[in-house]
Amino acid sequence: MHEFSGFPEAALDFYDDLEMDNTKTFWEAHREVYATAVAAPMKALTAALADEFGDAKIFRPYRDVRFAKDKTPYKTHQGAFVAKGPSTGYYVQVGAPGVRVGVGYYEASGPRLASIREAIVEQRRGAELEDILATLTSSGWELGGDRLKTSPRGYDADHPRIELLRHKSMTLGKAYGFEPVIHTPELVEQVRADWRAATPFVEWVQRHARA
């Protein structure tokens, strides 16, 4: 395993071109670029973080198009995910817009979502989550996730945390974009620091998302 030395410019160029020509012909002609500029660095990056966060799943580059209207065959980014619970954990990706990190839960079953909402409603646990999110969003993280347009059934629309209760999934993301650090070995410590900072959110979800 090679040590992580950064994502080369070729990785971003590869995805920039793939967005314009998402075909098997292009992919086969640039397979080696993907392997050396994208896949190998991502494997090295996640390996360098595994001692603290755990082993990552590096996603396949192929899209599942069986039930999709969009039949383009390849993903336009390379992602990796460290699971800490069902659909919950740490994320990093590289694509044409550069590098991005994330944390949170990207889906929740009915019982898990109900237990998360129960915690949000309860004053002590809900206030703890608000404090965690306020700290992270004030330092550059963006709150995202799928949300209901209306209040979830059974919850008061006037509840002080109704915006959080509308979430069906809840994620925090941070973009590094084209910052020079993404092309250097120092990206490992950048991701490590941001994942560490966001760990209180991951741990809050782990404690309260009961199956």
Rank of each mutant, 00 (worst) to 15 (best):
W195M: 14
G177Q: 13
G98Q: 07
A39Q: 11
F26D: 11
M170F: 03
I182D: 02
F59E: 12
T46E: 04
A175G: 13
Y106K: 08
L133A: 08
M20A: 14
A48Y: 02
L148P: 02
M20S: 14
A11P: 02
G104C: 03
P61F: 14
E28Q: 11
T171R: 07
P160Y: 02
I132R: 00
V33F: 04
T199H: 13
A29D: 04
S115H: 01
E118M: 08
L113H: 09
P97T: 15
M20E: 14
I182G: 02
T135W: 05
T46I: 10
W195Y: 14
V191K: 03
K75P: 12
V92E: 08
E3I: 10
R117M: 01
R60A: 10
V94S: 07
E52H: 11
I182E: 03
E3K: 10
Q190R: 15
W195L: 12
F67C: 11
T46D: 02
D64Y: 13
E130V: 09
E142W: 06
L129P: 01
H77I: 09
A209K: 00
P185E: 05
L113P: 02
E163W: 06
F26V: 04
A40G: 05
P86D: 15
E189V: 08
H77Q: 11
I58Q: 07
P41A: 12
G79M: 01
R210H: 13
A119K: 00
A211W: 10
Q78D: 14
L113S: 10
G102Y: 07
F26A: 04
R210F: 04
A35Q: 09
D158T: 15
V38L: 07
S151E: 14
L143Y: 01
P8C: 06
A209M: 09
R117W: 00
E203P: 10
A80M: 15
R196M: 15
Y34V: 02
Y106F: 15
T199P: 11
P97Q: 13
Q206W: 13
R60I: 14
D70Y: 10
D55S: 12
E19I: 05
E163G: 02
A127W: 05
Q206Y: 09
D131L: 12
K43N: 10
D51F: 07
P8R: 05
I162K: 06
V94F: 14
P86A: 15
R207C: 09
L133Q: 01
P200S: 13
D64N: 15
W141G: 03
I116G: 01
T171Y: 00
L12C: 11
A198S: 15
R100G: 12
T184Y: 07
R66C: 06
L45A: 07
S87Y: 13
R66D: 03
I120E: 03
G85Q: 05
I116P: 00
P180N: 00
F178A: 14
F7C: 01
G140P: 11
T36Q: 10
H30S: 08
D146N: 13
A10F: 08
